[in-house]
Structure formats: C-alpha cells, structure tokens
Design a binder for these strands. Structure first.
Lengths: 235, 235
DNA sequence: GAGTGGTCTAGACCACCCC
DNA sequence: GGGTGGTCTAGACCACTCG
C-alpha cells in the first residue's frame, strides 16, 4: 500500500513552503502543471492544492492561480491574538513602548521553552502595548538568536515583534496556554494597575521548520481584555 | 448560475441533522444512494459527505458507512472545555455537587444572553466540579425552559448539564469568551480559596437550530486550570 | 484566446466490514 | 459476496483573469 499520490504532491508543496524556498505570495504550480509533473490526473493534483488551501497554506483565485498565503494569516489562533488587529478593529489607536531589548543567555526555563542548551544566546524583548493611551498588554518575549540574528536591530515601535518574525521566516506551528494570574509588582507597575488585579496571561511558543523560534508571555488586565471565539456547526 | 449540486446535497444532509430528525449515530445514506437520489455522480455525492465530515458533523468508516457524529464531539472548542473529559484524561476522578437547581424568571442580563423577553421562564443550575476531592470549577448555568422543559428533573450528579443538553437536542453553535476575574465572596467560598485569587472565567452560550439554549459561566482558580491549544500549519 | 481554478461525470480498482 | 468508503482517471463545460 503505497502512499496516496495526492499526499506525495501535498508534501512536496508543503516542504517548499516550510523550508522557506517559496515565501509569501509565491505563485505555486497550477493544477495542470502538477498533474504533468507528477504524472497524475488533474483531479489528483487538485486535491493536494485544495487541502493545503483549506489548511490555510495557500490562497487560490479563479483565473489567476494558487499562491502561498500570508504567514500572518496562517492560523486562526494566531490571528485571534494579534493585538494590533484587535485594537484597530475596535477603531482605536495602537501604540507600543519598548521597555527592554537585549541579548541574554538562556536560563533553565527559557532553555526548555525554546528547546536549547543552557546558556544559549537568546534575545529578550519587553514591550507595553497601548490602546489609545491605556496600557493593555505587557509582552515579554524570548527569541532564539541563532534563528533570527537580526531581531535585536529592529525598531519595535514601528513593527511588532510578532509581525517582524512572521515577515522574516515561515512560522509553521504555535502552541498557546491561557491562564489567570494575579498581577505581580512588575505587571502592576507597567500596566498602571492597583492590586489586587486578575490578569489573563497567554503563553505562546511558535515554531518554524527549524525549531522553536519564540517563547512569549502576554499579560492583560482581566477587565480590559477578553478573548472570544465562535464555533459553528456545518455551514 | 445555479447552486452547485454538492451544496444542495450538503444542505439537505445538514438540515436533517440540525432539525433533529437524524440524531447522534444515525446512519446517513451512502455515497451511491445519494448519487442515485439526487441524480449526480458518486464523486459529487461524496463531496457533500466529505465536507460535512471535515466540519465534524459526520463520522465515516470504511466498509461500514457514514454516521451523524456525537454532538459532544462536534466542535473542538466545545471539546476543549469539557471538564469531565479533561479530568479523566489526567487520570483523576471527576465528581459533581449540586448547589442549586430551580426555576427562575429571567432578569435583564439573562434575557439578553438567551434572547428572551424579560421575565421568561428559565432554569438555573449551580454546580461545583471536583477533581478527586479538590473543587476545580464553579458552573452557573441558565437554560431556556421552553426549549428544554425537562432540564429541571435531571440528576446532575450522574450526568453533567452539558452532557444532558448535548444528548437531548442538537447543539449547532457555541460562543465562548474567556477573561480573568478576581474571585468574589461566593466563588471563594464554593471553591475553598483564600483571597486574593485570580480566576479564569469562561462564558459560553450554546445554540440549537431553535435559538439560544444555554448561557453558562464557568469559573476556575487560575493556578489550577489552563486552557491549551495547538495550531498546526499543514499536515 | 490562453491559462486558471470550480464543478461534474462515468467509469475503475482497492481495502475494509459484515453477513 | 455485496456494500462501503478511499483513491484515481481522462475526459468535459464553465467563469474568471490577463494580455
């Protein structure tokens, strides 16, 4: 029982994208080209393209062709948590203050999160996101310095760290954990809150094909932030 | 430009399920039966079944047939938050204590949440869920009494309210909001906590085809509860 | 008009399940 | 063996985009 042909094609396309050889908006081969190239019928080639489209890796337009999707739109979960989009959706202005941006050596916790040896080079960034003038998120982020060597040279008041990463390399996977925590001294200070304050804390790890890229803690004051989601059954 | 044939078939199947005429585990027509019934090729009938399967409405087994999926497994979001499964997944024992179960008249907040006129009949249930002997979730639930008239007669130490609802009528849609809150006096008391305590609060509304069925607040102590999720790119 | 994706057909072979 | 879903083919017509 050999692997299905459509899967072979799908994996070929996926590898081209995950490896970074085809980046955002790259035009991928048409159904007919793939059918010829892999000696299959058009319907079989089509299935590979179709499934990758449903999974968010490709965008297809009638009469135009199939293209690698924007990395920032890959995952609905990632999208849900893009704070800039959310704030602008509410018609408010997003701004960002850089608190820290420096090179560090990974401590045990960070090493585990990034799957790196102890004392590996990592970048650490701390930022405060504002909605209009109100602080709404504290972002503490560790980045694998080997995978994204230019991270530390960016101006994160102009582009958010997540946007920079998504622009720079193909993020292929993400893991999220959400929990409620009491704000500690630092959080109270940066978000200008009075104790006791419950905060929603989102911990995210994101991957590229080469490994864990980034480990991030996003902390929001509970009464100012809600994460919503809708699940629908059928069409 | 007439509607695609596969969509017509898909909508037909969906209506049978959403209306409740076909319930959990009901065997749906085979690819060949649908092809004959709708005068289309097998590939077209197949597409309707296939898409409903990807959307979680059907389960298909080679050699056996296609069946209406368990309502409790319809949505990954719903599944994530099924506390019984989560506790048992951890190898611990779930139990449940009924605090309140009574008929009420909807106040403004509940009326809005359930899309009902003021002073409509609703049922209210309050329960504490335990993981082994530790309280881990406070559930406060309002149910539209007209849609689920027998709700109040159930024994919720044997079946959870969500299980009962999912068993009784087809839940077609759900909306979730998660936020961090400080535990109030009542929550501290029922979950046996000391102030100040940050809690993760999940607010859920679930629909059937006839309207909003239920409006629920689930409160968990922050340090004992995490909601995880993974997003993957491609296969 | 040439190329693209969207839909559809009427066949085919296979692995699987149940009788 | 008969029915089921899983894969695959070699065609077809259409609507769309672009040059």
């Amino acid at each position: 029982m050999p692997a299905p042909k459509y899967l072979t094609i799908k994996q070929y396309l996926f590898n081209e994208i995950a490896s970074g050889r085809w980046t955002e908006h790259h035009k991928v081969p048409s159904e007919n080209q793939l059918a010829t190239q892999f000696s299959v019928s058009r319907m079989t080639a089509r299935r590979a393209l179709q499934e990758l489209t449903e999974e968010g890796a490709l965008v297809r337009t009638k009469g135009l062709g199939s293209f690698v999707a924007s990395f920032k739109n890959q995952s609905s979960l990632l999208k849900v948590k893009n704070i800039v989009d959310e704030i602008e959706l509410r018609g408010m202005k997003h701004s960002c203050e850089l608190v820290t941006l420096e090179k560090r050596s990974s401590n045990p916790e960070v090493s585990v999160a990034l799957s790196l040896p102890l004392e590996s080079p990592v970048f650490f960034a701390a930022l405060i996101h504002y909605q209009d003038r109100q602080p709404i998120q504290l972002e503490a982020r560790y980045v694998n310095a080997r995978l994204v060597p230019n991270f530390i040279e960016q101006d994160f008041t102009k582009i958010t760290p997540h946007e920079y990463l998504a622009k720079t390399l193909p993020l292929t996977e993400a893991e999220h954990v959400v929990e409620a925590v009491l704000a500690d001294r630092q959080v109270l200070h940066y978000l200008k809150l009075n104790p006791p304050q419950a905060c929603l804390q989102l911990t995210r790890r994101s991957w590229s094909s080469l490994g864990v890229v980034s480990f991030t803690q996003l902390t929001h004051p509970g009464q100012h932030y809600r994460m919503g989601s809708q699940a629908r059954f059928g069409d």
